[in-house]
Design a protein around this nucleic acid. Sequence first.
DNA 1: CTGAAAGCGCTAACAT
DNA 2: ATGTTAGCGCTTTCAG
Lengths: 368, 368
Amino acid sequence: MVKKGSTTIYDIAAELKVSPATVSRVLSRSSHPVKEEVREAVLQTAKKMNYIPNAQARSLKLKKTSVVGVVIPSISNPFYPSIVRGMEDTATQEGYFLHLCSCDRNQDRTAHYIQTMLEQNVDAIISIYNDNIFASLSGYVSHGGILVNLNTTTDPYVSDRIYNIQVDKLLEARMATEHLLSLGHKKIAVLMSKLDYQIRLDKVAGICQTLEAAGLELPEERLLIYGRDCQARELCREDTERGAQLVDAMLNRCPEVTAIICMNDIMALGAIFELKKKGYRVPADYSVMGFDDSFSSPYSSPTISTVALDKYSWGQSLMGFTIERIREAQDKGLKRLPTGVISEQGLLEPITLIHRKSTDVPRTSPGA
Amino acid sequence: MVKKGSTTIYDIAAELKVSPATVSRVLSRSSHPVKEEVREAVLQTAKKMNYIPNAQARSLKLKKTSVVGVVIPSISNPFYPSIVRGMEDTATQEGYFLHLCSCDRNQDRTAHYIQTMLEQNVDAIISIYNDNIFASLSGYVSHGGILVNLNTTTDPYVSDRIYNIQVDKLLEARMATEHLLSLGHKKIAVLMSKLDYQIRLDKVAGICQTLEAAGLELPEERLLIYGRDCQARELCREDTERGAQLVDAMLNRCPEVTAIICMNDIMALGAIFELKKKGYRVPADYSVMGFDDSFSSPYSSPTISTVALDKYSWGQSLMGFTIERIREAQDKGLKRLPTGVISEQGLLEPITLIHRKSTDVPRTSPGA
DNA sequence: CTGAAAGCGCTAACAT
DNA sequence: ATGTTAGCGCTTTCAG
């Protein structure tokens, strides 16, 4: 950014013998009237002199930056890139920018990133599935920040400028479970990473609910949970590997099961891999399903049944919603949406079930 | 960013009855001497008053923003997320931020993003595999911007502050081809998306070279290219789908082939999917391989042989290199690395071949 | 060791 | 319709 003598509105003003104010008015598309010929002249010399507006100077004056912070577990987790792309596209369209924060759902990382966003004066923060966001937020809210928080929050931190968008993971889990039930499965195992995040707890809860409603249950030994939680870079491969290891455990603990619900498609991929390696057939011996419709799911063997959501559209909607909130706050208290809990309904594309080849009726022979 | 009366160094100065200059000196860790007890007092009241430095004001004064622009085809292309995560991690570590630009390798998008980065005064831009970057760069370089450009450039735009890091795609292609050759394959097909980017051209060139060096060739009908190029959101699935369709074409045009090199693992996944669907076995009937070690490659059926690179490390190195260049430029012309073409050697982790199950010796029966 | 003051580039009152 | 000017929050000469 060495900008040795980059041209400013003063240079243009001098060149044209008008005031900087006039130049500013036309270059910032102010509604203030400017004589048409002057406007033309300004535009022209601006181009001629290769004028580039300075965003920092503008921000300093206007107290807004047009950047929105995006807090996700990790961009290398395959669930997020398409969401971020959706966000990026509508942000760009509306003249906003992304400040990306891969927080690993980690308290310290989150706190650190919030601090930097505070210093950078982001106009808003969008957080996805980060249970730790509120703990780091004390400063942010008091400084007038807007937060759009996507989670399955049951006890949200409510405040002006905080919008909790509640995702119904129970519903997602119910859809998956009902799918298996409708195929005739009665003994279902569940494969999960550590249950230290709300969305995972909710998934398990949803499965239990549905089972119970059908007069069935999820006995302890059929809920298999991987030891510690996963982070950072090769997250995706870790999840897959866990799926494989969890299947091993399952085959020891509860082989009588006929269907397996995995935390996500990535884990399902590993589960299926291991099952096949051990000589079992999917879905003939075991049905397996996941969540999130990972990109390889329609092409794996067998193709993976899943509960899907349109990630790109979610990203777009979330960013669109956020930018509306920013503008609303800048237009100083126009009609204000209710803060607090907001349903995903109507805001995000609905969840759908995709029945592919990894799920079918249960085997009839007992031992698999 | 509503910051109604957020505390500034003036507030702290007033509180302590010292000058703003003194406060600034301690809070910005200036080397300028400040009496120890004053320093303590400042630090303490800064904390007490909940002081947050204002990055825009700082940037305006210092003419640097600590943000680096990252130009990639798309964050939703599974090749990039781990690279970006690597970049993010070292950026964070060094006090820098990312400004993410999914350009779809598109001229207009690229130009637009460069313009916004110019206005935002990013300290540097890292561009990966974007042949169109130079066309949009006229303004950027003249404004003192630093560019770190990763590509297979043969005719780089050379200038002060432009660092062209040359990736040897020919080598990658050679490694893949030699692997197949060493297994005994003589008739090899190549599946590609439209050849309008340098990296793809280089891959094809590398394959041809290696074949010719072995006294073989790549006849026209064995080079299968998908019609138009792919963009944006569901990029990954498109590539897979293309792989499937290209295999169909291949089975018509050159079924005598015994091995297939795909543009990347994503395409290989689709190719294998289609082959199996048609009743062929991989690798018994056709060996298939790809590039880039996509995350599902170790878990697909069969697992996919590939030419791999450590994406996360690449991201880290690239960002590290870039930040060094920024600091160098700010320390005003210290020893300056040669601009122009720089070899990836030593800067990026080396490429390796991963032999998995999708490649084996050629079938002996003729017709597949 | 500390303070006063200029100024980074821009916008928005407030004149005119 | 245009110009003058203050100031956003910070750093940094320059003077003391």
